[in-house]
């Protein structure tokens, strides 16, 4: 089967609703299907990457664990919206996964250059 480059833009925080979880499920499946998947964390989705999440008490799966496993599923193109990390006072050291920090112009070009762009 042919391969397409897929950019998945995440914009929602974990746990409050299912959007982030369903987007990650989609990313893992697309990668398993041999697609060239890039993940861009924007807005509240940056909170997905925070270390030391402990969602057991709210009866949810730890989404940070899924994120830290992304490279094992051949998803190693991880991008982080620079503006968001600054606004939220989140530094690279606080994240469970290393990523490339990108600004708005770079994001616009990423959207242009991928075959398929899905934003959740």
């Amino acid at each position: 089967m042919q391969s397409k480059s897929i950019l998945l833009i995440l914009s929602h925080a974990p746990y409050g609703d299912t959007r982030a979880k369903e987007a990650l499920d989609l990313a893992l499946t697309a990668a398993a299907f041999g697609q060239d998947v890039s993940l861009l964390f924007t807005q509240d989705a940056l909170y997905l990457l925070l270390k030391s999440q402990q969602p057991q008490a709210i009866e949810q799966k730890n989404l940070a664990n899924i994120c830290s496993a992304l490279p094992m599923y051949d998803i190693d193109k991880i991008y982080i919206e620079n503006n968001t990390s600054q606004t939220k006072h989140i530094t690279a050291e606080q994240l469970i996964l290393p990523g490339v920090f990108v600004n708005h112009n770079q994001i616009a070009l990423m959207i242009r250059d991928h075959d398929v762009v899905l934003r959740f």
Partner: peptide, 14 residues
């Protein structure tokens, strides 16, 4: 979800 991935590959527009 594989059906969505397949659709993304097959289709000109998703």
């Amino acid at each position: 979800l594989g059906q969505l991935s397949e659709a993304a590959i097959i289709s000109d527009r998703l």
